[in-house]
């Protein structure tokens, strides 16, 4: 388990100073707009995928600590990764949010969400941005 104070610091840091924040106007980036139907989170995610590599991630929008921090953390995590690696991390993260036991070292700061499963009404906040990333990567295979 990650230390509680460390988790708190990670979340607040990413919430107050999100990484890869702000959208860009560039045709290489594909965008997904995720608006939650059950809460107010409303987030846009952009991915620049070149060949097999996730070159860049950007996002913007209104969100709570969980949705902002999880999107920010994952934007760091998958940037520069091969698509399959990024998808594998996302799958791991979904298992983490279900509360499944396992080794989540690879998820680095995203381990801060290891007890989020205990707040079922907030799990969706942790998914909103990451699901957008997953969809954008999957769609990139279709072309």
């Amino acid at each position: 388990m990650m230390d509680t104070e460390l988790k708190r610091a990670i979340l607040i840091d990413h919430y107050q100073k999100p990484h890869n924040h702000g959208l860009v106007e560039d045709a290489r980036y594909k965008m997904k707009h995720q608006a939650s139907s059950s809460c107010i989170d409303d987030i846009k995610v952009q991915l620049d995928i070149e060949g097999d590599i996730v070159k860049d991630v950007r996002f913007d929008g209104v969100g709570c600590t969980i949705s902002t921090a999880s999107t920010s953390i994952f934007s760091d995590l998958i940037k520069g990764k091969k698509r399959a690696e990024a998808l594998e991390m996302i799958e791991q993260y979904y298992r983490l949010l279900k509360g499944e036991a396992g080794d989540y070292e690879d998820l680095e700061e995203a381990q801060a969400f290891e007890t989020l499963y205990a707040q079922p009404n907030r799990v969706k906040c942790g998914l909103i941005g990451v699901e957008a990333m997953e969809e954008l990567i999957r769609e990139s295979y279709e072309k």
Binding site: R8, L11, T115
Partner: peptide, 10 residues
């Protein structure tokens, strides 16, 4: 505080 709010999620 923000710290307390985040605290209940940890």
């Amino acid at each position: 505080t923000l710290e307390k709010c985040v605290g209940v999620l940890l």
